[in-house]
Amino acid sequence: MESRHLSVVIAAPAREVYDFARRPENLTAWAAGLASGVTRDGDDLVTESPMGTVRVRFAAENDLGVLDHTVTLPDGTEVLNPLRVVPHPHGAEVLFTVRRLGMTDVEFDRDCAAVQRDLETLKRLMET
């Protein structure tokens, strides 16, 4: 099992980044993997993704910057995505762990590149 830790440093306070990133109405602005339109269903968010309809459940709001979330894929597979916003000397660092989970090298590299683009989009949004 291979994991890759991707990160970006954002020139904004960690709490502001955390608060922005966890709001459902902001997800489609920076998380392309969640494609379009997020609706709430109890504690879950439901959205259309490139894979079809997925359910997303974030960790409860906390003071530690933990934005871990479980994505339930259309086939019922659940994938835990570790995501953190931590204080950094220049603002905040956002760290996302991508797990290989049976992907080919090409698929894994493509998934990592997509996550890195999302992190860069979040950075642009927060620094504008």
Rank of each mutant, 00 (worst) to 15 (best):
E2V: 08
E2C: 03
E2P: 01
S3G: 15
R4S: 05
H5E: 11
L6H: 02
S7D: 11
V8E: 01
V8D: 01
A11G: 05
A11N: 14
A12G: 03
A12N: 13
P13I: 05
A14H: 09
A14L: 03
R15I: 02
R15H: 09
V17A: 01
V17S: 02
Y18N: 04
Y18R: 06
F20G: 05
N26H: 14
L27G: 00
T28I: 04
T28M: 01
W30R: 05
W30N: 04
W30Y: 15
A31R: 14
A32T: 12
A32P: 06
L34F: 15
A35S: 14
S36Y: 15
G37H: 15
R40V: 15
G42K: 08
D43G: 13
D43E: 15
L45A: 06
L45I: 10
V46N: 03
V46M: 07
T47I: 04
P50V: 02
P50Y: 06
M51T: 10
M51E: 11
T53V: 10
R55T: 08
V56R: 00
V56E: 00
R57G: 00
R57P: 00
F58G: 03
F58M: 08
A59Q: 11
A59H: 12
A60T: 09
A60L: 09
E61D: 15
E61Y: 09
N62I: 03
N62T: 02
N62M: 06
L64C: 00
L64F: 07
L64R: 08
G65Q: 08
V66Y: 04
L67C: 08
L67Y: 11
D68T: 14
D68C: 08
H69K: 10
V71E: 09
T72L: 06
T72N: 07
L73Q: 12
P74C: 12
D75W: 07
G76L: 05
G76S: 09
E78G: 08
E78S: 12
E78F: 04
V79G: 05
N81Q: 11
P82R: 01
L83Q: 04
P87C: 09
P87V: 09
P87S: 13
P89I: 07
P89Q: 10
H90S: 15
G91L: 11
G91Y: 07
G91V: 03
A92K: 02
A92C: 05
E93M: 12
L95C: 10
F96K: 07
F96Y: 14
F96Q: 10
F96W: 14
T97F: 03
T97I: 12
V98H: 01
V98L: 09
R99S: 11
R100L: 06
R100S: 03
L101T: 08
L101V: 06
L101M: 13
G102R: 04
M103W: 05
E107C: 02
F108G: 04
R110W: 04
D111R: 11
D111Y: 06
C112E: 01
C112D: 01
A113C: 02
A114P: 00
A114K: 07
V115C: 08
R117C: 02
E120P: 00
L125I: 14
M126A: 13
M126S: 11
E127D: 07
E127I: 06
